[in-house]
Simulated scan of single mutants.
Amino acid sequence: MSSVERVRLTYAFDAYCGWCYGFEPALHEFAAANADRIELRVLSGGLFTGPRALPVSAYPHIPGANERIAQLTGVTFGDGYRAALADGTVVMDSADAATGLVALRSQPGASALDAAAALQRAWYVDGRSLSDPEVYRELATELGLDADATAAAFASPAARAEAESDFFEVRRLGVDSYPTLVLHTAHGTDRLGGPVSSADALTRALEQYLAAATAA
């Protein structure tokens, strides 16, 4: 492998996935530490779509899962989110959230990873519905992006179609759980780390791959 060739990675996540929220700090640290040697794309997996797009109260296992996520990753769930859980009426619609990610990442100067993290903060910290168009205006402003253009993109059929394309690509890669970090190799794909991997562990796994690729 030449020194200028970047390793291609795909991060398959869902904005309404608590384990993805727990994994995000480590992934962000890993991506920053290895920015010169990786090319990372972020795709939505579509965890809560169709008949699974239901009020959060329809998933009674979530509070217990959150406790485990917090214990294993150290993330904090915000008061706004806890209030939304207690209320129970917010519908978790991953198609809307995925469309929002498309709307944000398509803006000039946008970082898809930063956009994904902002989506998860909006839900897991503030308890905001990711179906609310106003959320994307606010996130765009927070990320230094054009709020009007982002809102227009969120409402567009093209962004919805691209979100559906994300779902298809994630399935094509064989991913059925989130978060999953996929390493693209000359021979196919491998998984890199797992939901509770630290940034250092992810970097070690990447270096093992690079060493093996160089040896080959």
Score class of each variant (00 low, 15 high):
Thr73Lys: 06
Glu29Leu: 11
Val125Thr: 14
Glu29His: 04
Ala161Ile: 00
Gly80Met: 14
Glu142Cys: 04
Arg191Asp: 12
Ile62Pro: 13
Arg171Lys: 14
Leu9Thr: 05
Pro108Gly: 03
Ala58Phe: 09
Ser3Lys: 02
Asp36Thr: 04
Asn66Leu: 14
Met1Trp: 13
Pro179Phe: 09
Ala32Asp: 14
Gly174Val: 00
Asn66His: 15
Ser94His: 01
Asp114His: 12
Cys17Val: 03
Gly88Val: 03
Ala70Lys: 13
Leu183Ile: 10
Leu143Glu: 13
Ala26Ile: 01
Ala122Ile: 03
Tyr209Pro: 08
Val125Asp: 15
Asp132Cys: 10
Pro108His: 00
Trp123Gln: 15
Ser3Ala: 13
Ser111Pro: 09
Val102Lys: 09
Pro51Gln: 11
Pro63Gly: 15
Thr214Arg: 15
Val4Glu: 15
Ala95Gln: 01
Gln208Ala: 14
Thr73Leu: 05
Ala186Lys: 04
Gly144Glu: 05
Gly100Val: 01
Leu192Lys: 04
His61Cys: 00
Thr203Leu: 02
Ala159Ile: 03
Ala35Cys: 12
Thr76Ser: 14
Ala205Met: 08
Pro51Arg: 08
Leu113Gly: 02
Thr214Phe: 06
Tyr124Gln: 10
Ala95Lys: 00
Gly45Glu: 10
Pro60Asn: 07
Leu181Ala: 02
Ala112Cys: 07
Phe167Glu: 01
His187Arg: 08
Pro179Trp: 10
Asp14Cys: 02
Ala26Asp: 03
Met92Cys: 03
Gly144Ala: 07
Ile69Arg: 11
Ala213His: 13
His28Trp: 06
Ala97Arg: 03
Ala213Trp: 11
Ala186His: 09
Gly46Leu: 06
Ala84Gln: 08
Tyr136Ile: 14
Leu101His: 14
Ala58Ser: 14
Val42Cys: 13
Asp146Thr: 10
Arg82Pro: 14
Leu54Lys: 13
Gly174Asn: 04
Ala32Leu: 08
Ala159Phe: 02
Gly194Asp: 12
Phe23Met: 08
Gly193Ile: 01
Thr141Trp: 00
Leu202Ser: 09
Ala186Arg: 08
Leu101Asp: 10
Ser197Glu: 05
Arg41Asp: 11
Ala65Asp: 15
Phe13Ile: 11
Ser197Leu: 05
Ser129Tyr: 00
Leu130Lys: 07
Val42Ser: 12
Gly78Gln: 05
Glu138Asp: 15
Leu139Glu: 14
Leu181Phe: 02
Trp19Glu: 07
Ala103Gly: 15
Glu24Ala: 11
Ala33Ile: 07
Gly194Pro: 01
Val125Tyr: 00
Gly193Lys: 04
Tyr11Gly: 04
Arg191Val: 09
Gly78Val: 02
Ala95Glu: 03
Asn66Phe: 09
Leu72His: 01
Ala212Thr: 12
Ser111Ile: 08
Ala116Gln: 11
Ala149Ser: 12
Phe154Gly: 10
